[in-house]
């Protein structure tokens, strides 16, 4: 709360107050519009299946039902386990990613670093070209043997990405005065000290951003699970959800249905699919406010410091 006070302390002028009112109003409108479709999904997941099919999606469905969630409850142990895996992977992966990303971005941000351009290019190149799934698959499974381990969910692809690296580099370059680094070096600080004592503390807002992006990427990822996991006890939540969703999509496409004989398959209904979507974002709704505490602190902190 001290941050709030610090801002309030400045005794905002009329001008500033007006702008805040304007911002609040506009943001409220945008937020409501953004949330409407999501509310729709939540309501659809509580709508009776037949009603949903007959009348379409509605904010005020004629008949409510919790059947879709009953379907989930029956598989609750699997779902809880998958949540656990995903949360663990997200936490570890994000932490590792922050360490690697902030470190490699530092030399890239130093204009007096001889290989600055080369290193930046080296990093950027990975954003453009890749060898494709197959070669990566061969490498990770044959050389590193990470199949069916938690490493398979953490290490390939998401541990570090060019996009985040450049975000951090950019922040280092623009928000942290070079003079600060120079004076520290005059005082005899090593590069490592500069990095830990100056760069990292001052880069909190951008680290928070990058952490958030990485966490989202890990949370939403199902490709690593698809390629490297066959043991279902290591399935993350997205793998669980995507499997049900995509099996339905697959069977609905006309050619496949004819191929396999539509009559064999009793598909979960639309409301179940909506419930799956809700289940995918629910924990984020619960966890995010806590994580956000640090995140917003970073933002407001950076703002106050200056």
């Amino acid at each position: 709360m001290s941050q709030t006070k610090a801002i309030a302390y400045e005794k905002p002028s009329n001008d500033v107050r007006n702008f805040r009112v304007f911002a609040s109003v506009v943001l409220t409108v945008i937020t409501v519009l953004t949330l409407l479709p999501i509310v729709l999904i939540v309501i659809a997941s509580f709508t009776d299946e037949t009603t949903l099919l007959a009348n379409g999606y509605s904010f005020f469905p004629a008949k409510l039902s919790t059947d879709a969630y009953y379907y989930m409850v029956r598989q609750s142990s699997t779902i809880l386990r998958a949540y656990g895996i995903t949360i663990l992977v997200t936490a570890v992966g994000t932490l590792g990613s922050i360490v690697l990303t902030t470190a490699i971005a530092y030399p890239m941000s130093r204009r007096d670093f001889r290989y600055r351009g080369a290193l930046s290019f080296f990093v950027f190149f990975t954003m453009l070209f890749n060898g494709g799934v197959v070669s990566a698959y061969i490498m990770w499974t044959r050389i590193f043997s990470i199949r069916d381990t938690l490493f398979a969910l953490i290490i390939p692809n998401y541990l570090m990405g060019a996009f985040n690296i450049f975000l951090v580099r950019n922040y280092y370059e623009n928000a942290i005065p070079t003079a600060l680094i120079e004076s520290a070096q005059i005082d005899g600080a090593t590069e490592l000290t500069v990095f830990f004592r100056i760069m990292l503390p001052l880069a909190v807002p951008t680290i928070a951003t990058v952490a958030l992006f990485t966490a989202l990427a890990y949370w939403n990822d199902w490709t690593n699970g698809l390629y490297y996991i066959t043991d279902t006890s290591l399935y993350g939540i997205q793998n669980l959800l995507i499997r049900i969703m995509n099996n339905i999509q697959f069977l609905k496409s006309s050619s496949n249905a004819a191929l396999l004989g539509t009559q064999t398959v009793d598909l979960p209904g639309t409301s179940v699919r909506m419930a799956l979507a809700v289940i995918g974002i629910l924990p984020i709704l619960i966890i995010f406010p806590f994580a956000q505490k640090y995140f917003v602190k970073g933002v407001v902190l950076g703002a106050v410091k200056g």
Binding site: E49, T50, L53, A54, K252, T262, L267, T270
Partner: peptide, 12 residues
């Protein structure tokens, strides 16, 4: 986005 059986079950 619905299949025939789903549609039939609505009675419509």
């Amino acid at each position: 986005s619905s299949t025939a059986a789903e549609l039939m079950s609505t009675g419509n």
